[in-house]
Design a protein around this nucleic acid. Structure first.
Lengths: 339, 339
DNA sequence: TTGAAAGCGCTACCAA
DNA sequence: TTGGTAGCGCTTTCAA
């Protein structure tokens, strides 16, 4: 019968030490496995641990060791399949490296982002992977946060930070040139207005149109499907003479909205309207015709970001690295007007 | 010029106290805001905090307070839109309640699940929301884990635990009866074999067929799109006489696979094959015809789970509650053979 | 090879 | 209203 004063919470190494008849130091040694402990004692300690059902207190360990093996992932919205895929890749890497992942949705809201980053600071996080808001990229100065920071999907133009990015300008240019080659002349862009990504894709689009001597037409939108649908609907309501003959969306969610608007307007793809955009999400192959997209290597992006972070954690002083990955144009029926 | 012996890490409340000319106790009081502190001192402390850029060390706070405001969410795979939506709802609630969310993917792997739950124990998590594997529901005994546990999507039949579930039997029955009413007579089920959910839906399906005096036909599958596609393809390769005239999938991923197989087989929906399943994912309205589904109230499920957890945290001794939500049948073209 | 003791940063108790 | 002090559970010197 245990005493009434018995430990009410979970057992500590003190309890383990008592039961095994050794000092807490020895218990700790068995745990860290660093220094040698006589097999007899080691055995006794391990048995005591098993009998008591002892489990380490990570908070105590972190306080003492001054390192947390906790990493944060801050994305706009985990429901965006692009970020879902990234988060999954990051979580896999983290699990394999013995790191914990704290997930945060910023909703493109700088205040929420700030609050989450402060939280990561308070947690003394070992590192953070961040898809920064526009405001963040504009204000950010390297070294501001007390943890290594790796950016994904977006990054400040100038500042030297670790980042994993898509070649957005090139990708948008490729999509635009593809539409041009299909004979489209009034290509409108549905651009996410909340990220550098959207802006870079806009730049690539405008450059390609400039080459072709055609005027750009850009709608800056909230980056969600509803905004995409509303924006596209407005464009498609115009008379056939001025109405765009192609819609290009800078994200998977905007593309989804655009497709819905096209269907609601009763326009036949690709004859009356060509459609293309970013992100090879599941649904893009389901309509007839299927949707032309620029596929991003999402897993690769997530994995690379995690790798970059691990490397930076191991070697804090090394020069920042910027990994730029290429997308892949998947031409499908929604934009195929020739051949 | 600070001394060479200056604090190398981040400042502690000791530094703040020194700078403000008060004791650490007073600093702590200003932080917790519990007891009153003279405005002058409070001011001085706050200024010192600002000047030093002090941030709390959550590990220390947790160690001392013996409560962590950390909750875990363990799902099969965050890439499954069903779990994505749930996780987003949970994260929203957690953020609002000042709790941190640690995200874990179990991949339906009991060993990974176990390791994550042990981790949550080591973190001294304030609570965990879990979509348990089949093995877990079979072995689980209430009170085994040192944190409140709320189950989502699945739960042990017998054991009394907090849980948020769909009326799976009823939902599958409704879908099946709908297909029967459309004249389908050879309805095959693509069932996820890794969860109680799949089994309950199978039970509902079988009961409905029994009522109708028809034999069930069940394929137990790994719960992913590829398995769904392969399984469906096998069924659809049979001669028209024995081949199913309807496919019912117990999850969104299996449904996706089934749709792909139907398209690959060149079968016209719904004339040659009726198709229906669970989860109103984005893609289900994109094909022509659109897909009949039983929509789950995913946000509601996530929110309810978080609420249940918060209530349990506030009142550990209250009786376990089981919330059963109803799905909604959305009849679309893929199953409409009459009218 | 082992143990005593200090201390990570913070809060909570008690006394003044 | 304020401060001294103990201690959360663990690791890490330093001595033995």
């Amino acid at each position: 019968m245990p005493s009434l004063l018995a430990n009410p919470g979970s057992p500590s190494i003190k309890d383990v030490a008592q039961r095994a008849g050794v000092s807490t130091t020895t218990v700790s040694r068995v745990l860290t496995d660093a220094d040698a402990v006589r097999p007899v004692l080691r055995e006794r300690v391990q048995q005591a641990i098993a009998e008591l059902g002892w489990r380490p207190n990570l908070a105590a360990r972190r306080l003492r060791q001054r390192t947390t093996s906790l990493i944060g992932l801050v994305v706009a919205d985990i429901r965006n399949p692009f970020f879902t895929a990234i988060s999954r890749a990051v979580e896999d890497m983290a699990y394999a490296a013995g790191l914990r992942l704290i997930l945060c949705n910023s909703d493109e809201n700088p205040a929420k982002e700030q609050s989450y980053l402060e939280l990561m600071a308070d947690e003394r996080a070992s590192g953070v992977i961040l898809a920064p808001t526009l405001e963040f990229t504009e204000r950010h100065q390297p070294g501001h946060w007390p943890f290594p920071l790796v950016m994904v999907d977006r990054a400040p133009q100038a500042a030297a930070t670790d980042a994993v990015l898509l070649d957005n300008v090139g990708a948008a240019g490729e999509l635009t040139r593809h539409l041009l080659a299909q004979g489209c002349r009034r290509i409108a862009l549905l651009a996410g207005s909340h990220s550098t990504t959207g802006r870079q894709r806009q730049a690539g689009y405008e450059a390609a149109l400039r080459e072709a001597g055609l005027p750009p037409r850009v709608l800056a939108l909230r980056p969600d499907a509803q905004a995409g649908q509303d924006g596209a609907a407005r464009l498609l309501a115009e008379p056939a003479g001025t109405r765009p003959d192609a819609l290009l969306a800078t994200s998977g969610l905007l593309l989804l909205g655009a497709w819905r608007a096209a269907r609601a307007a009763g326009l036949a793809l690709p004859r009356e309207l060509a459609l293309a955009g970013f992100d090879d999400n599941d649904w893009t192959t389901m309509p007839e015709p299927a949707i032309t997209v620029l596929a991003q290597p999402t897993e690769d992006i997530g994995r690379s970001a995690a790798e970059l972070l691990l490397q930076r954690m191991a070697e804090p002083e090394r020069a920042p690295r910027r990994i730029v990955l290429q997308g892949q144009l998947l031409v499908r029926g929604s934009s195929l007007r020739l051949g």
